[in-house]
Amino acid sequence: MELKEVVLLMCVLAVSANSILNKEATDNIAAVETVNSTSIISTVDSVSTEPTVTLDNTTSNQSPSMSVVSKQLENKLYNFIVARKFDEAVENTISLYGAGGCNIIERVIERLFDEGQSIVFDYSYKVSISRAAYIVSRCFPAVIRIHESLVFAKLINKRDGYALTYSNRVESDGDRRALGDHNTKTRMGIEWSLVAHSSGDRLHYKMRPLRMAMFLKLGNSTDEDGDHTAYISHDDSTNRHLWTIQPVRHNGELLFYIINREFDKLLKFGQSTEHDGYRIAYGHSTKDFNPDKFSWYIKVM
């Protein structure tokens, strides 16, 4: 291990011995190879377990290896997040950052990405609205900072390579259809602001195109395929205007599902081109987690 990392972890231990390392870990020091116990994680996105490091078989005057300490610190933060203990997660994040542990925070975020945990966005938001917002700008990737007022994004569907935009044509009720544009280089019309909407400890987004004070929603009715047509509207007061973003790793790429809160449907584009070469956006008839068909790139501007 590099000297820098050794010094980092020693500092973390000194600064946050009480809040980071639990009593069981400090009372039962084990060899680095021993990984026996299982920590419980949240079932918000999926039911799973994550191995945690246990330490034993060494004398009381010995210290665990730095790699074990690093993993234990990582597990501590991870477990707070997936259990939705955000107050503890924020305090833990502050302690880690204060000791120079940005790399540990980054590893936890990557772990949540790898597991497809949408809670990574909740975590980013909770740290942002705390007294530790500066940590988000320094340790968090831009893609989970999309709730920030000056962070904008293009939403590009993986299967089609089309960017989310909207029609210039106004419907009879004042709404505009949400469309897919094959021109993903256009500066205006395909850039979106994702406005955080927190209800309790659950985070959703309202999605607003930069040039319009309107918000993405799904229509109430379904077509013959069972899909809901997507629109932008001036109203933003219903669950049809709220969206969850869920990460997915696929063939080495970080992608995202965009899921409507009201209907629990995945955002997609139709396969036929209409409206002057554009594709119509829909909420898919079933919740089919197929990344080749229904995942999106979030390109932060």
Results as ranks from 00 to 15, higher is better:
Arg111Ser: 15
Ser167Tyr: 10
Gly200Lys: 00
His204Pro: 01
Leu210Arg: 07
Gly270Asn: 11
Glu171Ala: 14
Leu155Met: 13
Ser198Tyr: 02
Gly100Glu: 11
Asp175Arg: 15
Glu171Ile: 06
Glu88Gly: 12
Ser95Cys: 14
Asp227Val: 06
Ser198Asn: 01
Leu8Asn: 12
Val151Ala: 05
Arg211Lys: 14
Ala281Glu: 03
Ser46Met: 05
Val195Leu: 03
Asn239Ala: 09
Ala213Val: 09
Thr43Gln: 11
Arg107Leu: 09
Tyr231Glu: 08
Val120Gln: 01
Glu50Ala: 14
Arg240His: 08
Asp114Thr: 12
Phe263Lys: 10
Glu24Met: 04
Cys11Ala: 10
Pro247Gly: 06
Asp122Tyr: 02
Asn22Phe: 09
Asn260Glu: 05
Pro291Tyr: 09
Leu3Gln: 12
Ile41Val: 11
Ile41Glu: 13
Tyr231Arg: 13
Ala14Cys: 10
Leu210Trp: 00
Tyr78Val: 04
Val127Tyr: 01
Asn239Val: 04
Gly277Pro: 11
Ala83Ile: 02
Val7Tyr: 13
Val90Ala: 00
Tyr278Ile: 00
Asn75Ser: 14
Ala31Glu: 08
Ala30Trp: 03
His197Asn: 01
Ser272Asn: 11
His182Cys: 10
Asp201Val: 03
Glu115Met: 08
Gly189Asn: 08
Ile29Thr: 09
Thr26Asn: 05
Asp114Met: 10
Thr184Ser: 09
Ile20His: 04
Gly283Leu: 05
Asp160Pro: 00
Arg279Val: 10
Glu5Ile: 13
Ile129Asn: 04
Gly174Glu: 08
Gly277Leu: 05
His228Tyr: 13
Val248Phe: 04
Glu50Phe: 07
Thr165Tyr: 06
Pro209Gly: 04
Glu88Trp: 02
Ile280Arg: 10
Tyr166Ser: 07
Gly277His: 09
Ser172His: 08
Glu115Cys: 06
Asn157Tyr: 03
His197Tyr: 04
Ala133Val: 00
Ile280Thr: 13
Glu2Cys: 06
Ala132Asn: 06
Asn36Arg: 12
Ser16Leu: 06
His234Ala: 13
Leu9Ile: 15
Ser65Met: 08
His241Arg: 02
Thr222Ser: 11
Ala25Leu: 10
Asp175Trp: 11
